[in-house]
Design a protein around this nucleic acid. Structure first.
Lengths: 202, 202
DNA sequence: AAATATACAAAAAACGATTATTGTTCAATT
DNA sequence: AATTGAACAATAATCGTTTTTTGTATATTT
């Protein structure tokens, strides 16, 4: 097994308590100093563990940073998933997701990184890796919506997921793209239209 | 009049032949070396003009770079506008715009800059300034589409424009967001659905 | 009038030497 | 079996210093 292959197959076990400690320390460092000014040694010091332990669980610094944001995203998707259970319609679910997504962008690690290293954040947001993780989030909700008759039953699941994803991502990243869509009510009305009838007649 | 106010009011005259020479030289430099490694002196040398002339027309280097990309975008919108005249439906127009937009991103100054300074390109794409210029592009086409009955007449123009913009921008920036939407046919089918009925029934 | 050429201080980039960090290895420790 | 600690070469960041570039001003030319 070559080094390259090994790196690909290696995946992080988020249940391992040591991994948790490493990621906690790394997140704290990135939050305070940014990615560039965070060293593996500093992470080790903050987490009160050895540098070697970090390299046991993460191939390199990139993998560690990736791990931090991956965990954050998983956590976000879980909280979002929980919050969504109160909503019945797909439109309300997407609306809530957009509002939660915006909130998430303007606080915590994202907000601080955007201040210290905006180019890094920009690169992350434009990378497809970032969204690919959220894709699996929607299909169950799409299917539920099809079951209740809110949206068409003969819509292809992948295409519908893609459509919802595009709207959600776009609304989180660009609150204003011509029309003002700041408040939850404005977003809901907009999505109601977009999702149920597009630009066609009611 | 303060310096700040003056800078705000000053706007570039793209018909001025000297402005054209400056922008030609600047674009050539940016294309070859990137923004960071392009100096005002080099632009002057390439354009066979004085550094003073550049500062007569552009407040600073940022304004010059802005001018280059602004002109490129205007040119793109004009060619797109011309190409769109052959298309009758809004769906076909948006499809063509998406394909032209993707093409535009993968050649010329954008492609070369993406190689040398990807973070700069990422920042540009995420800035709202970039899209705000394209917003005025769509309303006439939306209204035409409403006139022919392709889309609803009682749809608010700003919201419809916003919706078309979001789909177009998203499809240009993220060719794959779950569903494969590479070819023009795939994009057209997707947009046909999205624009005319959203996720509702046919 | 606009373009040029030159000069200038302040800011930024390039440079080279020094220091810190990275990623790997391995023996010792828990 | 995982973690630690220490050593190590290779890479990258940092720090003063020097050089270039910036933005402005002004006299001169077209």
């Amino acid at each position: 097994m070559t080094a390259i292959e090994e790196k690909q197959f290696k995946s992080v076990d988020y249940n391992d308590p040591m991994v948790g400690r490493i990621l906690d320390a790394a997140e704290q460092c990135i939050h305070r100093f940014g990615i560039r000014r965070t060293s593996m040694g500093e992470v080790a010091r903050v987490g009160k563990l050895s540098r070697g332990s970090i390299y046991r669980h993460f191939a390199d610094k990139d993998a560690l940073v990736e791990g931090v944001f991956r965990r954050r995203q998983i956590e976000f998707l879980n909280t979002a998933e929980a919050a969504l259970e109160k909503e019945t319609s797909l439109v309300d679910k997407v609306t809530l997701s957009v509002m939660l997504g915006r909130e998430n962008m303007h606080q915590g690690i994202f907000a601080s990184l955007a201040e210290t290293e905006p180019e890094t954040v920009a690169m992350m947001l434009l990378g497809s890796r970032f969204y690919s993780r959220s894709v699996e989030f929607w299909p169950p909700h799409i299917e539920m919506s099809q079951a209740t008759g809110e949206i068409s039953r003969d819509q292809n699941l992948d295409l519908a997921t893609d459509f919802v994803m595009r709207l959600a991502v776009s609304l989180v990243m660009f609150p204003d793209m011509g029309a003002s869509l700041e408040s939850a009510d404005e977003v809901r009305d907009y999505l109601q239209r977009a999702i149920t009838v597009g630009l066609g007649d009611y």
